[in-house]
Amino acid sequence: MRTIITGGAGFIGSHLCDYLIEKGHEVVCIDNLLTGKMDNIVHVIGNCQFRFIKHNVSDYIYVDGQVDNVLHFASPASPSDYLEFPIQTLKVGSLGTLHSLGLAKAKRARFLLASTSEVYGDPQIHPQPEDYWGHVNPVGPRGVYDEAKRFAEAMTMAYHRFHGIDTRIVRIFNTYGPRMRVNDGRALPNFMCQALRNEDITVFGDGSQTRSFCYISDLVEGIYQLLLSHEHDPVNIGNPEEITIRQLAQEMIALTNSKSKIVFKQLPVDDPKIRQPDISKARTVLKWEPKVLRAEGMRKTLAYFRDELISGGKRV
């Protein structure tokens, strides 16, 4: 198998590169390094099964030779990223998806779109099943990401229906693990770094909003099972174990034995109040469910961030 991964130098994309190489795939990673990092893939540079192409997939994509799978994971995903790069986020969700689908069509390859739980917006149904259409503000600051992914899903299904492309759509819920950026901007890496530095932990709102965190190895396994399936409609992949943001902050202080205190700031516009995947479909169709307990995943992730802070010259 020869597999293209756009955004392959990112957090999730780089773990997919590793996983597919272990499965025997030849992997071509395409990334313009806007939010991805070479550090995430440096360990496979020189591997005969791996090739890196620095390229912006919002421009036309050309790859020579056979291609069996195209996995489109290129996009800013953190709120701090897509608020800093709103136009690039919209372009990679639209033009990047168009060009990635065009590559799959030209090569007669399977196509898998990395979508997101953000297509559900600030949901009015809990937990969120795949047949829920969402509650999204298209003109709010988060709309550049939410609507880009909703458009990408619509385009993927159009290529499936009109051109007969063999497509998949994974809706990814909150995921964590090694290779997240220290300055990622999301709650979990922020909390970890603040706790390790004994700084105040910043909680937005009153902390009662909920999230459900899936460890990266579970997510990658779910994505692979979806790739191998014959399911064309969207599938939620995430961990249904729900936790409030305040509880997460308290848990982080306890895990790190930190002297940090929790401080509260104003909740950002359109920030979802609840987030929990209904994974009934993944359990039934893919025979998949998460296996890594949060305590185990947090320990592994904390060890990574501790090393990152030390290597960055920061005192922990």
Rank of each mutant, 00 (worst) to 15 (best):
P79T: 02
V139D: 13
F111C: 06
V170N: 09
H99W: 11
Q266W: 08
E84C: 12
A106E: 14
M298F: 15
I87N: 12
E251R: 14
P290N: 06
M252Q: 07
I61N: 07
R306V: 01
S115Q: 02
S75I: 01
L33G: 00
V203C: 05
I169W: 07
V182T: 05
N257V: 00
N257D: 15
H232I: 07
K261L: 10
D146H: 12
V63G: 03
G102E: 14
S117D: 13
V263T: 12
L71G: 02
A74G: 10
C214F: 06
D18R: 10
E130I: 04
I279N: 08
E199F: 00
G143L: 10
V57P: 04
G140K: 05
V92S: 14
G205V: 01
Y120W: 08
R181V: 03
F151T: 06
F173H: 07
F264D: 10
S260F: 02
I12D: 00
G13R: 05
F173A: 11
L293G: 12
H230W: 09
R108V: 04
E308C: 15
R246K: 14
G297F: 03
E296M: 11
G93E: 09
E242I: 09
G185M: 05
I216N: 05
L196E: 11
P76T: 00
R142I: 05
E22C: 09
V57S: 04
R315K: 13
Y62W: 13
T202W: 05
C48L: 11
P123Q: 00
F151R: 03
M252V: 07
K314C: 04
S75C: 14
P127E: 08
D31K: 01
P86G: 08
E26Q: 11
E308F: 08
G46T: 02
I274Y: 14
L90W: 11
L34C: 06
A154Y: 05
D270N: 14
V170M: 11
T116W: 02
H25P: 03
V292G: 10
T175I: 04
G93P: 09
D206R: 10
N236R: 03
Q276Y: 07
W133M: 12
S58K: 01
T97G: 02
V203L: 11
D59Y: 08
S260D: 07
